[in-house]
Design a protein around this nucleic acid. Structure first.
Lengths: 247, 247
DNA sequence: CGTTTCGTTGAAGAGTGTCAAGGCCAGTGG
DNA sequence: CCACTGGCCTTGACACTCTTCAACGAAACG
């Protein structure tokens, strides 16, 4: 039995990946039942994080990867002079903490933007399963590599796109991720503030607000504070591709 | 004996990692002699790439990771509408191709900026050694994670720094990498064009040129085309930290 | 119900981008 | 060896996007 006295953990529940409907996000496909059974051991416990609370902070010792069961979080890094850069927003089924492997210390802050529950996967267990099941080792390397590829896309956005293109890409990305989780792709709630969106996209919050208003004025979206409805996804795609809408 | 008919490869040489002075960059420390011996098998062959030629291109099937023996390369991604974003510059001892693990296809272009020689490490062998030597599996996961952390830093740069800060950070980073390879930290040759620097830093080539001229005028550096000498590293550091130099 | 945080909008200004012209340098061929 | 060529770099003037500063309104929270 794992250590269990940590606050906010729920170690008593018997975790079952095979019955989790987020399985496809976390666990490799095409395993034998025996192997899937082995994966159940990955998750040591669950942990709840309240809105605004950190899952971990830069400098914390790295001990586990976390899989989000439900909720929403942001990752961010800070420069020495205090500038914050949001590096990612995370939603259910995604893994957090991959940055910590490098130096056995986390290099970014992760904070919940709404009440969140995660599966705690001690890194030791990942290593143990990796050593035992080749399929899983490949799977985990792919997860790491996929994060590298994702960041390439973000660098393209930060390095060469205008404010409107960035926001259009951002909205479409969220839309697609919501859809793949069974939610509406055309209507959702932004869990982050304008400042956080701005930080993620390399813009100021006022710019984010203005561009959203412009999109709204052009009938691409309907915005009401945090509530967003995508009216003309094709129009947004056109903007991402560099060509301003031609209505 | 590995397949050897591929153009530009040098399979006949018996590769020896243990005698390579770049060892510390590629190979984990603290292995037994037996284990180090096993690592020799990682490198299947060497390959030469002429200046301007690609090592691989986005869409190419992923088969190997490459370790740079000597030379200089850039990685870049292209958006659907043709914008190029340089995602990294690579120098000796560094590994290339980690992006390909995700989808078994490379997702970026890698092109040599000067005549280059790389060690070809088939991914299959990495998996084989990973399965055999736990130390190496951890080492390789750390390499992947380190790349994620590096990109966080770049996102901070692209998302929240001004042109001068970006270039100062860029020069200091190069300086440090040259130094750790035994070259001068204060005097080096830029192998890439202004346009490539600009792409990497999210700036236009004219801006890069202007900022370098400004640095030169402020006696922080001496520039002569591709030749750069860092005169006042402390001043550059001050700029990165947000405070303009206070001569 | 007051307080605080967050979001919107306007006006003015700074920082980069764009466009254009000219100079430097390496490589090529006469 | 020299002139020519094309790629790369520098610099200026101007345009434009985004930021900054500021004020106000709306929603969230205790």
């Amino acid at each position: 039995m794992p250590s269990s006295s940590v606050l906010n953990t729920i170690p008593s529940l018997r975790v079952s990946c095979s019955h989790c409907n987020l399985r496809e996000h976390c666990v490799p496909l095409g395993l034998s039942l025996k192997e899937i059974d082995r994966l159940e051991d990955l998750v040591a416990s669950r942990k709840r994080i309240r809105r605004g609370e950190p899952l971990f902070r830069a400098g914390d010792r790295f001990e586990a990867i976390y899989a989000i069961r439900l909720g929403f979080l942001k990752s961010s890094v800070m420069s020495s002079d205090g500038r914050e850069q949001v590096t990612n927003f995370h939603m259910s089924g995604e893994l957090i903490g991959l940055d910590g492997i490098a130096n056995e210390v986390h290099s970014c802050d992760v904070v919940a933007l709404e009440d969140t529950e995660v599966c705690v996967i001690p890194y030791e267990r990942i290593l143990a399963v990796s050593a035992e099941i080749d399929e899983y080792n490949i799977h985990f390397q792919k997860i790491l590599s996929r994060e590298i590829v994702r960041q390439h896309g973000l660098m393209l956005l930060l390095g060469s796109m205008h404010a409107e293109e960035r926001l259009a890409a951002f909205l479409l990305n969220l839309s697609q991720r919501f859809e793949s989780r069974g939610y509406s792709r055309s209507e959702f709630v932004l869990r982050m503030t304008r400042a956080e969106i701005g930080s993620y996209l390399g813009l100021k919050l006022e710019t984010v607000s203005r561009v959203l208003s412009r999109f709204s004025h052009d009938n691409l979206i309907v915005v009401n504070q945090k509530h967003v409805q995508i009216v003309n996804a094709e129009g947004l795609r056109a903007i991402v591709s560099g060509q301003p809408a031609d209505v």
